[in-house]
Design a protein around this nucleic acid. Structure first.
Lengths: 201, 201
DNA sequence: CTTGTATGAATGAGCATTCATTCACCTACC
DNA sequence: GGTAGGTGAATGAATGCTCATTCATACAAG
């Protein structure tokens, strides 16, 4: 079978996929800086050198993991959100998506919560734009709610957006670090309840 | 001058202090894994080998930075909190302390927000206990507020505590990554307002 | 002289990356 | 349909560099 035929059958590049998946698994388990390229290659079932046919180097693997996951995540978010009018329901949907997405793949969650933050360099270079986009979605939702009159207007939308993101983020981080496994997604309701309703009696 | 006399005069070990301070600065600037022990030594104005007279190794420097800062932070928190009765005011005080403490030392904040999380190993080994203690302070404050009737009781205190911590944490992380400098502490009021009052109109 | 401290050059382990070689498969020509 | 030559994906051993760590030596103080 010709290469083109093979790739058409197996999706775009078998090995690239395998390496990315292996990267998530290995980086999550040992930490990015403690992982050897050889570990990733072996986990992916390819030779060390093969990694360099698909990626510029170790950094590029992490970069690619982030890019792809984040693009998917944002696309899914936008898709789900456009059916919903009520800003409060949109906020609820964001929480559900955020927690169910990361709750479904612990290794990916570890890479996102822990490894991607392990270096200011990565934070600045890679996550900045995509992360800003995500925060922007939340901010606009809140702003819309304020114009509707559903949300109070004496709060800066960007601050509220960061708080909401931070709250969700902390749920995920705690979930990862917890010894005892528990489902993550169900926490969405509680988080939204407190965020919208406040803690005061 | 004898060691004892020297130390008595200069505080407990000149060099140990210098190395710790240099560690914060260097790790914050380049990231823990990209920092060389030689960088820290030179920043501290000591020879490479001297580092090993005061620390077991590179890891131990990071460990020590965390231990000391966290102990101080928690002690200050407890001290300030015991004068206050109203749980809502205690929540406000926690926010102020959290943001003013980290807002006052950008390098320390970077090490806390970014570097200490860069490895699950560090997260698990070092931060777990101290971090849990901090979260526990918040949780108990909320619980007390619920018993008082000041806070609603249909919310799990531990979830609310994590949300509050997450919100503060995100303020700090955003502040670090922001290109434009702005004061961090003033955000405390807004965060508390949303956390207690909720976003709903 | 002895003891405690500090030095920084030397060491060597660890690991990202390279590249000469292999080999599966394709195309062209008889 | 079979054979020769060509292609480039894949390999993994070898390379060479980067540091963390050590230790023989210098120095200071009493």
């Amino acid at each position: 079978m010709a290469k083109a035929a093979k790739q058409a059958k197996n999706g775009i590049s078998d090995k690239r996929e395998a390496i990315l998946r292996a990267g998530v698994k290995v980086f999550a388990a040992k930490g990015f800086f403690n992982s050897k390229v050889a570990d990733v290659a072996s986990e992916a079932g390819v030779a060390d050198g093969t990694v360099y046919l698909y990626f510029k180097g170790k950094d590029d693997i992490l970069h690619s993991i982030f890019d792809r996951a984040m693009a998917e995540f944002i696309a899914e978010g936008r898709r789900e959100l456009e059916h919903i009018d009520d800003p409060a329901k949109q906020i609820a949907k964001i929480a559900e998506l955020h927690l169910s997405r990361l709750g479904a793949d612990r290794s990916l969650a570890v890479v996102f919560q822990i490894e991607l933050r392990g270096s200011t360099k990565f934070m600045e270079a890679f996550s900045a734009a995509a992360f800003a986009e995500y925060l922007e979605i939340i901010r606009k939702t809140i702003e819309r709610g304020q114009k509707d009159g559903a949300f109070r207007s004496d709060v800066k939308p960007i601050i509220a957006a960061k708080m909401f993101y931070g709250a969700l983020d902390e749920m995920v981080t705690n979930w990862i670090l917890s010894k005892k496994p528990y489902p993550l997604e169900p926490l969405a309701g509680e988080v939204v309840k407190v965020f919208l309703g406040g803690l005061n009696a």
